[in-house]
Amino acid sequence: MYDRALLALDGLRGNLKERSVHYNSEMDKKLDAEVKLLRDVRRGIDSDEFTFFIQPRCDINTGKIISGEALVRWNHRERGFVSPGEFIPVLEKSGLTLIVDQLIWEKVIAWQGKRIKDGDECIPVSINLTRADLFSIDVKKTLKDLCEKYKVPRRLIMIEISDKTYNDVDKEILAMIKEISDAGFPLIIDGFGSGYSSMIMLQAVQPEVITFNMKVLNDEEGHITKAAVILHTVANCVQVMDIPLIVKMVETDEHEQYLKKFGCRYAQGYHYYKPMDVSSLEKIIKVRENVDYSGIKGWLEEANEEPEEPETSVIENSKGKNFFREIVDIRRQVRRKVGAE
């Protein structure tokens, strides 16, 4: 009786809408399935069944790949590839995320190292860090050692910090993240604008890239809602700070049109490329026209790339100055004041 009550109570965790719950036999079935999956996960770790796919990130103006994100995948020996939505919660609940994360980090860095050894050019690839990683191991030392082992420049390994990692504005976490960034690993703040914590992160560290998730703007049918003003606001904010913005989960022409409307340049999603194994990615980036190895550029760098603006975008004031250039100057002044320059 007591065990069943605990099992029912476990189903309430994180659910703020319900105040009570009743036990039913389906809960036992769910628990049995989780236990079996956990056994399979442990065996999968021992059997090296966990690998990574990479989802490219693109310049929407050219369609060229500028970087990628490494995503964990589980190739089950009997079931084939298991949905991340099925096994990742089990990893998190069991504490095995730390082990799998380190496996993926090494595989990503080893792959980059092999390409360098073979004389191939590399795109920067981001790996994900969790709170468990930061509190359980010396992440900075682990990554430095791996880069040294496989002779990979740190600039090619981008560190992606999700809002789940820093959402309680923990000063200790911010200090650890800053140390990793200061060691030469480019920092990505994932899910920017999802809460107050995003602003705290910007005060503590200077990220190379910020991402915004398109799904927060979609209605149930995947169409953009009036909440698109959020994306517009985020785009304006990072423009002033001169931090490149990558919009994730771009899946339709409608999504892309909104990005262009708000001046966004970089995107990631099924509209461009789905996550793929490294052999498939290598076939794509082997064609040089598919890749921009100059990487992600800041807003000011983009402005300085173009010596002259098209006539349709030039607004002259009474002194005849280019209004666009004045905006650039204002951004530089703001960045100096907040210590970004």
Rank of each mutant, 00 (worst) to 15 (best):
M1W: 00
Y2V: 07
D3G: 02
D10N: 11
S20F: 13
V21L: 15
Y23W: 13
M27T: 09
M27N: 08
D32M: 09
E34I: 02
E34R: 15
V35W: 06
K36M: 08
L37W: 01
C58R: 13
I60V: 15
G63A: 13
I65K: 12
A70P: 07
L71F: 09
W74E: 10
F81T: 11
E86D: 11
S94C: 10
S94M: 05
S94P: 07
L96E: 11
L98V: 15
D101V: 07
Q102A: 04
I109K: 06
W111T: 12
K114D: 04
I116G: 03
I123K: 05
P124A: 09
I127G: 02
N128K: 09
L129W: 03
L129F: 11
R131A: 14
K141N: 07
K141W: 02
T142K: 14
D145S: 14
E148N: 15
E148F: 06
E148W: 04
V152I: 12
S162W: 00
K164F: 05
T165V: 12
E172C: 00
L174V: 01
D182G: 04
I188W: 10
G191R: 08
S194W: 00
Q206M: 11
Q206L: 12
L217N: 00
E220S: 13
I224V: 14
A228E: 08
C237L: 15
M241S: 00
M249W: 03
F262Y: 15
G263Q: 05
G263L: 03
Y266Q: 04
Q268M: 14
Q268C: 05
G269L: 11
M276G: 14
D277A: 09
S279F: 08
S279L: 09
L281K: 03
K283F: 02
I284T: 13
V287Y: 07
S294G: 01
W299Y: 13
E302W: 10
I315C: 11
K319S: 06
G320P: 06
G320W: 05
V328W: 08
R331G: 12
Q333N: 08
V334S: 07
R336W: 05
E341N: 05
